[in-house]
Every structure is written in C-alpha cells, then in structure tokens.
Computed example of a mutant assay.
Amino acid sequence: MKEAIAVSTVDFTGALWRKSSRSGNGNNGACVEVAHTGPVVGVRDSKNAEAGTLAFPESAWAAFLVFSS
C-alpha cells in the first residue's frame, strides 16, 4: 500500500455526504453515504451515521469503484 492516512486526523465535520444511487425505495432509502474530504473518502451507514465512519485513501476508493461496477 502506497498511502497511509492517520484516521484519527480525518475530520468529516461539515463534509457533504451523499447517498448511494442504489439506495432506492426497496430498503426505505437506507444505504451507505459517501463523502470526499481531501485525499480521504468516508463511508458510513445512512441510518446510523453516529456509529462511525470508514476512511479510505482516494486511490483505494477509486479501485473499489472500478471493481464494483
């Protein structure tokens, strides 16, 4: 892995969260939310945002998107 990010230093306060395009009406609109903050992408559960956030380097998130499409 080329990048290392100290997760404790990532601040998602004020981040613009957006829901997955796949969180349709079949599951009451509950799915995952994603926010981009600098070199980090945050992912959280839209129905329980206070439970925590996963943080990924942008390069890892880009690779995930390529393999998941």
Rank of each mutant, 00 (worst) to 15 (best):
M1N: 09
M1L: 05
K2S: 13
K2N: 09
K2F: 02
K2V: 06
E3T: 06
E3W: 00
E3N: 03
E3K: 00
E3G: 00
A4F: 03
A4C: 06
I5E: 10
A6P: 07
A6W: 01
A6M: 06
S8T: 14
S8M: 01
T9R: 15
T9C: 07
D11N: 14
F12V: 04
F12M: 10
F12T: 05
F12R: 09
T13R: 10
T13S: 12
T13D: 13
G14R: 02
G14F: 05
G14E: 04
G14Y: 06
L16N: 13
L16I: 14
W17F: 07
W17I: 08
R18A: 14
R18E: 08
R18S: 10
R18M: 11
K19M: 03
K19R: 14
S20K: 12
S20T: 01
S20Y: 05
S20C: 09
S21D: 09
R22G: 10
R22M: 10
S23V: 04
G24C: 07
G24N: 15
N25V: 01
G26S: 07
N27S: 12
N27C: 14
N27V: 08
N27M: 11
N27Q: 04
N27R: 08
N28R: 14
N28H: 12
G29N: 12
G29L: 08
A30L: 13
A30N: 10
A30E: 08
C31I: 01
C31V: 01
C31M: 08
V32C: 08
V32N: 04
V32E: 02
V34E: 14
V34Q: 10
A35P: 05
A35E: 05
A35N: 06
H36G: 04
H36T: 07
H36Q: 08
H36K: 06
T37V: 15
G38E: 14
G38T: 10
P39F: 02
P39R: 03
P39C: 05
V40T: 13
V40Q: 05
V40L: 06
V40C: 12
V41G: 11
V41A: 13
G42W: 00
G42Q: 00
G42V: 00
G42E: 00
V43D: 14
V43E: 12
R44L: 13
R44M: 13
D45P: 02
S46I: 12
K47H: 05
N48Y: 11
N48D: 12
E50R: 10
E50G: 06
A51N: 13
A51Y: 09
G52V: 12
L54Y: 01
L54H: 10
A55I: 01
A55F: 01
F56R: 00
F56M: 04
P57C: 01
E58G: 15
E58L: 04
S59I: 12
S59C: 06
A60P: 15
A62I: 11
A62M: 05
A63T: 11
A63H: 03
A63C: 10
F64H: 07
F64S: 15
F64I: 11
L65P: 15
L65M: 04
V66Q: 02
V66I: 13
V66T: 09
V66D: 05
V66H: 07
F67G: 15
S69M: 12
S69L: 07
S69H: 14
S69R: 15
S69Y: 09
